[in-house]
Design a protein around this nucleic acid. Structure first.
Length: 606
RNA sequence: GUCUCGAUAGCUCAGCUGGAUAGAGCGGCCCCCUCCUAAGGGGCAGGCCGGGGGUUCGACUCCCUCUCGGGACACCA
């Protein structure tokens, strides 16, 4: 099943700026005609009207398939129904011509004057064009990335980061009040392994001869950096001799032991030798160094969070216990083999899940229940999680827990992002965190640049596996789709900046008065595309599909480039010149607005 | 085995929630700068939309089934 936002909104856009009166006026005209057919007894009910933009200009500007949908109940061929509908239509100045075509499509050809207003609307609203309050200021939280702070972000996290940030900006554009949140897993066993790894490296840096556990953060260079920083700041106060550290520690895997027991024993040893304060300061140094790095990395990627939410704080505020209590009171908890289980099967999960282990510790799932409960309790009307597709099996149990606690799980949307495979020189790169050979997000940004990285990540549907071609993303050539769109923007800027050199002024008002001179095919196509922008933004936002905007911008850039090649803008005829300059200015604005929503820059020069 | 995502041009992918002749980019071939940026434009070639059933006025789109791939199925995080 494809996970999509549950759309319960009135998708009618903005009253603030009347961006698309065209489609709406057709809709109301058709509605009236259908009412008339109902009172004439030809049909009984009216279906929901689907008025779509045509692909082919010979089919007019908008088309409606309602006649075919009504053919059955009317007991007449669709083309006859279409004729009846047309006969019942009130005349309207905005519509030039109506035709019946194909099996029974009703095609609307708009009067030129009614299509031109979009140019004025765009120039009037500027960077606000396309923004609306279609979502009625609904409060929504988007949680994404939330990678364990045990190392730098890698390219796999990049896709979630780009997708989440872009979704947030799109949703803000249509009127959601969005908070972005990063859930910091600062409480688990991995963090203890990290802290212990740092300490052991610190000991080695202090010339203590000591083996490194096979299950530790072994080949990660940053562990050494953190260890050296601790050494520089604290000297040798954490040093213990090898015998004290290793005495009675069960063997590691290469020596015939179990790597998990081995490292757990080392963690225990670290805590006992260092004491809780000493251990904590190493733990904290590791956590903060890595988290600062992640934070900086994301900021440089144009990804900003309102909240960084600590998993540890759940324990500190007793929220995990509270959540388990809630489940218990509702009768969904039972005990088995010393552990507490949540009976999630009641709510459709495959099997029941442990929340409190037999050793008294809560599971990761318990934290997550508490965390999600807290999200709801913080007053969000909608909560969106963006997870890697490998977590999909986790969805039913989280939703089950919310339902069990009396929350409306349909307010939680979990969007699953598939992995991105990196290719360099036609070869696939490995991205395993633990193998130590991964490409970091920072390396990616440095190699291909922020714009290309952001763009490439959202170019594909999120549930689609994607191939990320590093060579293509960094190529400063015509192969690169990012530059193609940016170039269209820069070209327009270049034309506008040359006006003064050529001692020509752009009279916008005069342009408005002569928009009717824009009759070239390139011009009408461009105008029609501009008119589609607000729809695309809405759709991309409500369906959580940023790639729709990417494709739109490419098409818009293509039309601009074609237009540019076919016609001159700075010409002697001042009326036509001003009209054309208005058109390309509006195009520039839309390119800029769209790129901005994607988190990609819109350069004036390239 | 169960769940899940996918399969569309040589390659990478769109396809507007069921509409008209299936579209881009890259790659291949051919054209276009005395002209506002050629990081551009125009054209040609290239397809049983994985196979098979079904639903209906109409299916790349929805349902079933099979084939082949990615991923997931812990008291880990």
């Amino acid at each position: 099943m494809t996970v999509k936002l549950t759309l319960t909104y009135n998708r009618t856009p903005p009253k603030k700026h009347e961006n698309r009166p065209l489609k709406e006026s057709i809709e109301s005209l058709l509605g009236q005609a259908l009412e008339q057919l109902i009172s004439n007894g030809l049909i009984e009910t009216r279906p929901t009207l689907q008025i779509t933009r045509t692909k082919d200009a010979t089919h007019g500007d908008f088309t409606c398939n309602v006649a075919m949908m009504l053919a059955k109940q009317a007991g007449k061929p669709p083309r006859d129904v279409a004729q009846a509908i047309i006969d019942a239509l009130e005349p309207d100045d905005a519509i030039d011509k109506i035709e019946i075509a194909g099996p029974g499509f009703i095609n609307f050809f708009l009067a030129q004057a009614s299509t031109l207003t979009i140019i004025n609307d765009i120039l009037r609203d500027g960077e606000d064009f396309g923004r609306s309050n279609a979502a009625h200021s609904e409060k929504v939280q988007i949680e994404f990335v939330s990678a364990n702070p045990t190392g730098p972000l890698h390219v796999g996290h990049g896709r979630g980061a780009a997708y989440g940030a872009t979704l947030a900006s799109l949703m803000r554009a249509v009127g959601f009040e969005v908070d972005c949140e990063y859930y910091v897993n600062d409480a688990g066993r991995q963090m203890n392994i990290l802290a212990t790894s740092i300490w052991l490296r610190y000991l080695q840096e202090s010339s203590i001869e000591i083996p490194f556990p096979s299950n530790g953060y072994k080949s990660e260079a940053y562990i050494y950096d953190i260890a050296r920083t601790i050494q520089a700041e604290h000297g040798d106060i954490f040093v213990h001799d090898a015998d004290a550290v290793m005495r009675d520690i069960p063997a590691d895997e290469p020596d015939g032991g179990d790597k998990e027991t081995h490292i757990d024993a080392l963690i225990g040893r670290a805590r006992s030798l260092l004491g809780e304060t000493g251990y904590h300061s190493i733990f904290k140094a590791g956590l903060e160094t890595i988290l600062d790095d992640i934070r900086e990395d994301l900021e440089e990627f144009g990804v900003h969070y309102e909240n960084w939410y600590s998993e540890q704080s759940l324990t500190d505020r007793n929220l995990i216990q509270d959540a388990v209590d809630q489940l218990q009171e509702a009768g969904h908890i039972y005990e088995d083999k010393g552990a507490l289980w949540f009976r999630s099967t009641t709510f459709g999960d495959e099997k029941d899940r442990v929340v409190i282990r037999d050793n008294g510790q809560g599971t990761y799932f318990a934290s997550d229940i508490a965390y999600h409960l807290d999200k709801f309790d913080r007053g969000y009307q909608r909560v969106i999680n963006i997870w890697g597709a490998d977590h999909h099996g986790y969805v039913p149990r989280v939703k089950a827990a919310l339902t069990a606690m009396g929350r409306d799980e349909s307010k939680l949307d979990i969007l699953l992002v598939q992995f991105a495979n990196l290719y360099r020189n036609g070869e696939r790169l490995q991205m395993s965190t633990r193998s130590g050979s991964f490409v970091t997000l920072r390396e990616l940004r440095e190699e291909v640049g922020r714009d290309a990285a952001r763009f490439f990540y959202v170019m594909r549907k999120c549930e689609q596996h994607m191939d990320f071609d590093l060579d293509l993303a960094k190529s400063q050539s015509n192969d690169n789709p990012v530059y193609y769109i940016q170039y269209a923007h820069a070209r327009i800027c270049s034309v506008l900046s040359q006006l003064s050199e050529k001692q020509v002024t752009h009279d916008v008002v005069n342009g408005q008065q002569h928009l009717d001179l824009l009759t070239e095919k390139h011009e009408t196509e461009l105008i029609s595309k501009l008119d589609a922008y607000a729809d695309i933004v809405n759709k991309a936002a409500f369906n959580a599909e940023p790639h729709l905007l990417v494709h739109y911008l490419r098409e818009l850039a293509n039309l601009l480039h074609s237009y540019y090649n076919a016609h001159q803008f700075i010409i002697d005829d001042s009326n036509l010149r001003d009209a054309r300059l208005n058109l390309i200015s509006a195009t520039r604005q839309i390119l800029c607005n769209g790129l901005t929503l994607l988190g990609v820059s819109a350069p004036a020069k390239m």
